[in-house]
């Protein structure tokens, strides 16, 4: 491993992160404008593309053409019906608001690209995988959350979440830059292993997805059932569930990969280290959520609360364990 750090690239990476934060904030504003004014347009778009149905699903659905109809989902969002045409005689919101949503998406893609570039330059600057300490890990996690959202919105109608994902990512990155930043450099020998590509990457992807579901969950609890300009509760529930269904097996894999790595690095595959304990607790909590939904039929608030408890465990494992509890797994290099 090269001991030399390309400081030029490292600085570029730091600047790119600032650009990312800015772009996410702009994206957040655009999404917010879209939420505030863009509903009528959104409503008709919604009808054309059923929520969370795959974006081209209607096209190929073979039944209709041959004279078959299966049940059509009822619109679960009273807000949409309510905002049909409530505008005054002036007739609808200003025209530019039509562009707020697409602008939000475009800005988040730009931010996403900057985020990616920042990770890449950091990795190139130090000649290793760019997630060897807590700063890098949080940057990658925010990137994963934004990726999860952006790719999900390509297939499903989840743009309504944009403002909140952008806020979460911007806050996460801001926190990382302000409190966690460490100079780019080589990692301790224990991390100098191909396992970092397996274990930490999986943890990052899973965490990114869990952030998406966590954001949906918080929003779910904040919004009341009534007709507000916020995404509807069933929508939020579906996004959260989908993200967890994908994220959970990846998390499981990350923990097992961690155990395999621990078997190589620490001489045992499981030793109840604080990070191991909390990874396990997080796993149980998400499993409980899935189980509650799948078999006990929990829906709505109760399931969401379980999900948010799991999310809290995830965050505690990241922040709490790295900063307060320590243990073997303390490669986090928290500055301070």
């Amino acid at each position: 491993m090269p001991a030399e750090v390309d400081t030029g690239l490292a600085t570029l990476s730091d600047q790119l992160i600032l650009a990312t934060v800015l772009l996410y904030v702009f994206a957040m504003i655009a999404y917010a404008l879209d939420l505030a004014f863009g509903r009528p347009a959104e409503a008709s778009a919604r009808a054309a593309r059923p929520r969370l149905a795959p974006v081209g699903a209607g096209v190929g659905a073979p039944g209709a053409a041959s004279g078959v109809t299966a049940g059509t989902g009822a619109d679960p969002d009273p807000a949409v019906a309510g905002t049909g045409r409530v505008d005054g005689p002036s007739g609808g919101p200003p025209a530019w608001t039509r562009w707020a949503g697409p602008a939000g998406v475009a800005l988040s893609w730009l931010g996403w690209a900057a985020n990616l570039a920042s990770l890449l330059t950091r990795g190139l600057a130090v000649g290793r995988w760019p997630w060897g300490n807590m700063y890098e890990f949080v940057v990658a996690m925010c990137f994963a959350a934004m990726s999860a959202f952006l790719f999900m919105q390509l297939r499903y109608r989840v743009r309504f979440l944009g403002a909140f994902v952008a806020v979460a990512a911007a806050l996460g990155l801001g926190f990382a830059v302000r409190y966690l930043h460490v100079q780019a450099g080589p990692v301790v020998p224990a991390l100098n292993s191909y396992w970092i590509a397996i274990h930490v990457s999986a943890a990052i992807i899973a965490s990114g997805l869990f952030i998406l579901s966590g954001v949906s969950g918080i929003l779910y609890l904040v919004r009341k059932d009534g007709s507000v300009r916020l995404p509807s509760r069933p929508d939020l529930e579906r996004v959260a569930h989908r993200a967890i269904v994908i994220g959970f097996p990846i998390w499981t894999f990350a923990v097992i990969a961690g155990a395999l790595w621990a078997d190589k690095a620490w001489g045992r595959y499981w030793g109840w280290d604080p990070k191991e304990i909390w990874a396990f607790i997080t796993w149980i909590a998400y499993a409980a959520y899935l189980h509650a939904r799948a078999t006990a039929g929990w829906k709505g608030k109760a399931a969401m609360i379980v999900q948010l408890i799991a999310f809290a465990c995830l965050l505690f494992n990241l922040v709490g364990v790295n900063i307060f509890l320590g243990g073997l797994h303390s490669y986090a290099e928290v500055p301070g």
Partner: peptide, 19 residues
């Protein structure tokens, strides 16, 4: 073939999949 008529037509008969 189940006619793939107009791809852009709003497709009302796709069921809400996840409910």
């Amino acid at each position: 073939e189940p006619a793939n008529t107009e791809p852009s037509t709003p497709e009302p008969s796709t069921p809400e999949p996840s409910t």
